[in-house]
Design a protein around this nucleic acid. Structure first.
Lengths: 342, 342
DNA sequence: TTGTAGGCGTTATCAG
DNA sequence: CTGATAACGCCTACAA
């Protein structure tokens, strides 16, 4: 436990002033004789000197830290997003402060408070939907806020990066219809989320386009956390006129739904055709391999980081950017024609 | 884009000195009249004042940030670890800086450098195995270093939290032997990792205990990244006397191995009994449901955070702590008696 | 090319 | 109880 050398120690040991040391620390900030630079560098090395970030940040609020506020990193979708965001940020010399909300307003509020105190230059978040005033305040402070995966309609001034949810749900539903299904159910995120709403909208559009009747009983919302997906599944299966096809558009509930189906002894796709919004390697290993909607997580991450770093200091006050990337429908073997009804 | 109020602005607006404001900010640091406190609090509220972390850190190096240095967050094991670590840290008012190494020495070195500059109070890491001098330096500086999941034997002074790898591999192997298998293969992490070594050691012990012959051809190492698991699988299958049982002890390679098995048309468990080190919900949904070794990630996280925060300032210089938690063998349906050889 | 001095926002010490 | 004031470690004009 040795106390850290400061810039002053280095200066003294090298027989120069702190200004010179500072200049070799920040190339381009001023001229330094080559000989001097070498000597100072050597001293820093032998002393084991490392400039202290906290002191640097105190001067000019630095775009060196970025907050990543996700619902939950145990969800593979968010985990991969976090992975990509961290890599992308690192490649630009930016550090990432990771926080989770558990979809809880209150926790989100606390996290945002510490993000404010840390004066991060940007925040990439999957917002719960509340704390509107705090989000606004963050923007007022000049923080670059980027919502990823979801958005908050009441906050139209924020940059957003999402997949094209409407189109994704539409194409998945359309595929079911093309296979001859007339009773197509969907389990989606809560209607309070833009993601949930958009996907249900796409679902409805596909039904309309196929001339299919809409049955509200076939539309189920399930929270992003908990086991609501299983209950929704049970409810659908016990309908008087149960669906022959199911689109699981809530990534967080995919395994819960499949577990319930397995438990109920439903065979896929003979008794029920299934498409899931999920891109785990496991989907391919299932029996049968699942038809999926793959979300381009790397693109989400790349755009998010770019936007969160685009306004180096202060907002360009232009319109907010909205990036919408396309998901990919990957057909495998969990969709077939419906079994003729007796 | 408004510039942030400082403690001085608050003091001025409230008609008090900065010292008083500082005291209401840090309760317990000194006496403040109730009336004054209220007035100051109000002013802080209306001005939207938030103390700046960077300035605070400049004073006394604060145990308010913790570095989490993982190989890769897209790996569900690490993702869940990150999730738990973040939650545990948050519950103690600590923030987490997330970094990844991609198992690359060089990247690890860079990450460690920025961690040093930030003067984090503690680091939880899955070390690549190199950068020994930097790890030592970190400890000299008083940083609490905790290795999780793996360790570095050459660095015996570091706290370590792992599962009981030897025992886990032994019990998995023993289960295979108990089912009558005599040709049991294992795919493990690289022999350069403690994790890989320990698991292979446990495997050998189980074989000895069962009186089974050891065949080096049945022991395969695969890197933590890439598709080496698939190749190892192919190699095992094409052996003259192929195994009837396989323990996949490298979490990162589980899906790669299963994909290869599926591709080769190997049926589980009829042609090959399988146990995997993995705890994804998907393992239960496979056909057949996989027998797994479940790692108690929550315990790993809890202990890691505790240790990383245990030496508030400066090391207690006691012996390093080694926590070894037990994994759980969960029997499902991917293990059966070997098919009698023709 | 190098040195001096002041300030960034907060906390801590010591008088009032 | 409250108020000046000196650090904390680094950067940056401005001088030399």
């Amino acid at each position: 436990m040795q106390k850290q050398p400061t810039i002053r120690d280095v200066a003294a040991a090298a027989g120069v002033s702190v200004a010179v040391v500072s200049r070799v620390l920040n190339p381009g900030s001023g001229p330094v004789a080559a000989a001097t630079r070498g000597r100072v560098s050597d001293v820093m090395e032998t002393l084991g000197y490392h400039p202290r970030t906290a002191a640097r940040e105190l001067k000019h609020g630095p775009p060196t830290t970025l907050g990543l506020l996700l619902a939950d990193v145990s969800n593979p979708f968010f985990a991969r997003l976090a992975d990509q965001v961290v890599q992308e940020a690192h490649s630009r010399g930016i550090q990432v402060l990771l926080m989770t909300t558990q979809e809880d307003d209150q926790l989100e509020s606390e996290r945002l408070a510490t993000l404010i105190e840390r004066r991060v230059s940007g925040i990439i978040a999957t917002p719960t939907g509340n704390n509107l005033d705090t989000w606004k305040k963050l923007q007022d402070m000049g923080t670059d806020v980027v919502f990823v995966d979801r958005s908050i309609p009441a906050l139209p001034a924020v940059d957003v990066v999402t997949i094209n949810n409407t189109e994704s749900a539409r194409s998945a539903t359309a595929l079911m219809a093309a296979h001859g299904h007339r009773r197509i159910a969907i389990i989606s995120g809560p209607a309070s989320s833009t993601t949930g709403r958009d996907r249900i909208a796409g679902y409805r559009e596909a039904l309309d386009a196929a001339g299919l009747e809409q049955d509200e009983l076939l539309i189920r919302s399930a929270a992003f956390r908990g086991a609501a997906g299983g209950d929704a599944t049970t409810a659908l299966l016990s309908l008087e006129d149960p669906p022959t096809a199911l689109v699981v558009a809530n990534t967080a509930q995919v395994t819960a739904v499949l577990r319930r189906l397995a438990h109920a002894g439903i065979s896929i796709p003979e008794e029920l055709s299934v498409i899931v919004f999920e891109d785990s390697p496991w989907t391919e290993l299932m029996t049968p391999p699942l038809t999926i909607v793959r979300q381009p997580i790397d693109l989400l991450a790349r755009h998010s980081v770019r936007l969160a770093l685009s306004n180096p200091s202060g907002k360009t006050s232009g319109k907010p950017t909205v990036v919408r990337v396309d998901a990919e429908l990957i057909e495998r073997s969990s969709v077939s024609r419906p079994k003729p009804r007796p």
